[in-house]
Write a protein that binds this DNA or RNA. Structure first.
Lengths: 156, 156
DNA sequence: CATAATTTAATTGTGCACAATATAAATTTT
DNA sequence: AAAATTTATATTGTGCACAATTAAATTATG
């Protein structure tokens, strides 16, 4: 009699079975789909995310922006300097705490929001998803990210 | 009488409502979760993906690798040179067509697969998802990526 | 108060991503 | 066969990501 068949329960090393690759590929496709829309505004995708945060609430510090986007100063500092060069925002140390750098939108930065107003609708068209499927997938991804987040520092 | 309430159907510019950001953040969290596992193998995450493909089928060209991973030579050429430096693979022009560069695993490259064998199980533990939820999410992401893929060139 | 510890940004260095261009080989057209 | 086109890879340049280090300001502690 043959030995019992080995169950293929050992997770595989096949690319097409990986959740990580589906995620990685979809994320890059998504960014690529935004690219032509953002080119019209002279923004990269990460720059667009920063602008989204600042359009919601202006005057955040680099740290607060980083918490929101899960990016550190090594990424944000040069990105913010480029947006400053582009005339969309200003950076200045707070007088209350000179360690903190406050980011403030310029008039041009505020105005750019109008140019971005059509982007979500335009992207929604390309997605071809029901609002329900959209919301469900988005929230599943949020849950996944939370699950993968490093354990919270017990001091907090 | 008041004017009818405007439905918030105009897609929003709020960060937390964006599918794109959930995707972008989850993808980076996923890569960050792989990082300590891959450090033990001296691989970055994109390098790991290349190795996954080559463990499946050796002797692919740069173009074939790029099609599989959706990456171009600007990304792959330096990455492959680093893997070559690390002694995991070799690169040589094909005699049948000198334009093509064939990538072949070295013995060390083949052997590394054993060191990677535990990674999927280890990641599965951290995910805390049922096999069903895993498969469904993965396939939804594949569908999304396909939906966002540029239209195929009609010549093909 | 003095100094040690902590916090916040910036800097440096490595490795992707990706557009644009270059180069060379192969293929097709003329 | 020569010219034009296509294909495969490499190169260059820009902009993220992120680890590690540095520097400055603030807070905590003896």
């Amino acid at each position: 009699m043959l030995a019992p068949m080995k169950k293929p329960l050992d997770a595989s090393l096949h690319l097409d079975e990986q959740l990580c690759f589906a995620l990685y590929a979809a994320s890059r496709r998504m960014t690529a789909t935004y690219r032509p829309l953002l080119e019209a505004l002279d923004l990269t995708y990460p720059q667009y995310l920063v602008m989204l945060v600042l359009w919601e609430r202006d005057g955040l510090t680099v740290r607060e922006l980083g918490e929101r986007l899960q990016l550190d100063s090594g990424t944000l500092t040069p990105l913010l300097k480029r947006l400053e060069q582009a005339g969309l925002l200003g950076r200045r140390r707070r007088q209350s705490d000179e360690r903190e750098v406050e980011i403030t939108l310029t008039d041009a930065g505020h105005t750019l929001r109008e140019g971005a107003a059509d982007i979500p609708r335009c992207m929604a068209e390309k997605l071809c998803m029901s609002i329900d499927a959209f919301t469900r997938l988005r929230d599943e991804l949020k849950t996944l990210a939370t699950q993968l987040a490093p354990p919270t520092d017990p001091r907090e």
